[in-house]
Design a binder for these strands. Sequence first.
DNA 1: CGGTATCCTTAACGATACTG
DNA 2: CAGTATCGTTAAGGATACCG
Lengths: 118, 118
Amino acid sequence: MSNPELDHIACKGTIRAVHDAMDVLGGRWKMHIVASLRYGEKRYSEILKDISGISGKMLSRELRDMEINQLIERSVKSTQPVVVSYELTDYGKTIFPVIESLAKWGSEHRQKIIHTEE
Amino acid sequence: MSNPELDHIACKGTIRAVHDAMDVLGGRWKMHIVASLRYGEKRYSEILKDISGISGKMLSRELRDMEINQLIERSVKSTQPVVVSYELTDYGKTIFPVIESLAKWGSEHRQKIIHTEE
DNA sequence: CGGTATCCTTAACGATACTG
DNA sequence: CAGTATCGTTAAGGATACCG
């Protein structure tokens, strides 16, 4: 049943789609940020605490990128001191299935690593 | 129904799982390679043609990484000239759901970009 | 608190030339 | 064909200091 030509076309399509996704979701931290905002809005400092390893500079840079791409929304409450929070837009929430499958694979992968005591 | 504490625990778990996945699948090209091998084994030069933008150096480096992580298998047929091909291991194939959701998001994202004529 | 500016180091990556 | 070696450039990222 398998057809080399059709496979090739499908393959190229998948690669292109993966490429398009990576343009926006690529980089070490974007997926982490989506995961952090998974259950609702959070403040800058909360996200910073959530994601161990990220620096403030990178977090603000990535947040800005994602805001430009309309994945997240930044809101400022002009209290004293100022409170800034971020949340996923409806469009940003469409990434959930990706995060979910990635997280699922990641936790299964960790199990595998543990059991083969690497 | 939503519980801030439970959300926080779930969130941290997701972030950790995403992190574990990224350790192995991170980088600009690994997902492309999985997509390229999606429908069966391929030769080095075929993968190189599939993935536009990747250089030979990066391809061989990424392939080696993935072989070490047991995601792909490299086989050499000692004909003249030598033929080397790569294919996903059973373990590597467990990444399919991730690729699928990523590709799905990517193609929808492209549609969105086109329709908002960015 | 939520950043930006500056400096610095390392890693990623590409191009080219070369080899078995 | 399937790479490796070498060189050079750009990007990623951290540390620290500073600002409204």
